[in-house]
Design a protein around this nucleic acid. Structure first.
Lengths: 190, 190
DNA sequence: TAAATTAGTCGACATCTGTTGTTTATCCAA
DNA sequence: TTGGATAAACAACAGATGTCGACTAATTTA
């Protein structure tokens, strides 16, 4: 079901093809109509795939979105090499920037972001932020679950706030203002 | 559609009756099966109402849940008179406690809280927290949108974290540990 | 109290969902 | 290269959703 990274290569070509068609079709639809209004039928029609086949790959359209977002955000993090470092003010700043840019970009791409859509994204991204922060703070001797939780939510809240502003200030400017609010809670644990 | 508080009294008795039946039926169902598995049919069956009538009152079951939660949380806030005060460390502490208790209680009541359910709750509650914090900070001369946002998300994140812990420490104990992480960002604006 | 308004009932409709059983095609390993 | 395994197509199903128009019953108001 989930294309395990290790196995992604040696996958039955039929599976790889079908999955590709689904993803591609879905991404296209996402850009032209809102997520909520996309039906599984829509996806399989455009992908020229039988509807039943879809369900052999994803439980529903939410899982599909989740998969897509997860992959995209992970790529974003890796691009900035935030996954191979530990806590520093600068890395934290970059993480906040990454989330902000990601959400802005997402809103630019997707016609009519709506409730369902937003909260699914939120859950997916927050999980990754939390895992990353936990990883950064791992060497700390004190337990860091609570500060990592607070920071995760604060970061996502900030980013979502920013991405919803009608008139957005420059990324850098906004981060400078917002960054200390998050950092103050992590400094003592890092 | 939305029972405006002012008009709630002088409402057509048929409407009041029907709405009551829907709410009651829904609350019962919520307690005995998960939210996701409740269908509109279920609600109207138990309420002894025609299914079409339901849609004259609520757009869908999500709106119904939203209405219910909004009302419940508002009551919780008013019970603690948090709506008629302004920022103080103690009030903030109480707000955090209120959210935590609310979520714990909700999880206790509802069979199988699930994704959809949780994120709907989240959006509804966060909005109210944000409005409350904004109100508390209103007298401040500096703009408080960003700190209020960060605090809102941090509070909700904490509460949700707490309510999901397998072995929950005492409320008071947890709040003592978590409170400073939120307060530090608000102190300077209050 | 009669007339007008509005809520609720009923049956039906098109559409979507998730699932199942059968058949066809593609792939891979012996 | 052939035979077994497995993916995909196809058709059909029960159930849910949201909407509609016509009909009936309750309530309001003139």
């Amino acid at each position: 079901m989930l294309p395990n990274p290790k196995e992604e290569e040696k996958l039955d070509p039929r599976v790889k093809r079908t999955r590709g068609l689904i993803l591609q079709s879905f991404e296209t639809l996402l850009a032209e109509k809102g997520f909520e209004t996309i039906s599984v039928q829509d996806v399989t029609d455009k992908a020229q795939i039988n509807r039943a086949t879809f369900y052999a790959h994803f439980p529903d359209k939410y899982a599909l979105l989740d998969y897509l977002i997860q992959k995209a955000f992970k790529t974003e993090i890796e691009k900035r090499t935030l996954n191979v470092c530990s806590y520093s003010p600068d890395n934290l700043r970059n993480l906040i920037l990454a989330v902000m840019e990601f959400l802005v970009h997402l809103h630019g791409d997707c016609f009519q972001p709506h409730q369902q859509f937003e909260s699914l994204i939120e859950g997916t991204i927050k999980k990754q932020i939390f895992d990353l922060l936990s990883y950064w703070l791992r060497k700390s001797k004190v337990p860091t679950e609570i500060p990592a939780t607070v920071a995760t939510w604060a970061i996502y809240g900030l980013a979502t706030h920013y991405s919803h502003m009608k008139k957005r200030p420059a990324l850098e400017k906004f981060v400078d203002e917002a960054y200390p609010l998050v950092a103050v809670n992590l400094e003592q644990f890092a």
